[in-house]
Every structure is written in C-alpha cells, then in structure tokens.
Amino acid sequence: MHHPNPPAGIRGPFRLISPLASGSANGNPGDLAERAQEHADTRKRVLVVEDEFLLAAVLASDLQQAGYEALGPFVTLTEAMEAAGSESFDGAILDINLKGELVYPLADELTRQGIPFLFLSGYEARNIPESFRGHARLAKPADPAAILRAVRSMLRTAS
C-alpha cells in the first residue's frame, strides 16, 4: 500500500488520495477525479473526525468518489475544534470516542454554528448523552452506501 504522506503528516485539509480513489484501484481511472475537479467550486465540504486511520482513509475516499471534499481526518478533539473554528465546511461526520476523548464539545459547537453533523460510532444509544441520543447516528461498521445516503440527507437538510 502506498500513501503519498506518512500518517503523521495527514492533517486537514485532506489531501490524501487513498488507493481506492487512485486510478489503479478504480474501475474508471481518472473519471471521478476529473468530475471532482470540474465541480471543485461547488463541491460540498465534509469535516471528517475519526481517530482510526484506516476507517478515516476509506471514509474520505468514499466521500471524494461521491463528489464531496473530505476535510480532515481530524483525530483529536483539539484538532477538530480548531478546524471547526477556522475552516468552512457544509457538514461533519463525527466519531464519538477520539482516543478516549468524547466528541460532544465539538457537537455542541457545530450545533451552535448551525452546521449539520452525524455521528458514526460503535456506541449504543444508552451510552450517548440524552441531548444527542436522537441525533442522526450510524452504527459502526456502517455500509459505505448508507454513509453516503446519510451524508446526502444531512446536507440536504442544511441547504
């Protein structure tokens, strides 16, 4: 496997093109990349907060292939909070447990800013604070198609 950046260098904005999105691993090399380029101005940006490198890599590449720009991945709460303060984006996918820290302060911040987000987590409803229990949440492991559907509907509610 080949990554253009070592893991430590991967910080937002997301520049990693994973093997999935690269031509060699893709049915239609270049196709999606070109399309993504064409729509560069209108592409919606999705903040990815996920501390597992491999999950984040697949998630980001799925988002990119679907025509979104993946911003991140941010692996700690501090990094993600900074990004939420300085970057502009249309929605966010939040893992809940970030190396032992819980993502809720960021969720509160996004709520305050009116930016839609969805949780992607292995936690059960019972382990989630009541204020967020009813919030959009996908259980890990989530089907990639289900993630994209959820992202679409999240961004629709925003616009």
Partner: peptide, 26 residues
C-alpha cells in the same frame, strides 16, 4: 461493557476497511 462493545465494533469496521484497501474493484 460500552468500551468493550465499542472496541469490538471498531475492530470489525477496521477489518472491513482493510478488506476495502486490500483488493481493487476488479
């Protein structure tokens, strides 16, 4: 228990990611 369950599911999610990254679409 929540941690255990979270870890199990995370690990299975990683297994799926590894699968995705290991094989090309063809």
């Amino acid at each position: 228990m929540a941690e255990l369950s979270h870890r199990v599911k995370n690990t299975l999610a990683i297994v799926l990611s590894i699968e995705r990254l290991s094989f090309s679409k063809q």
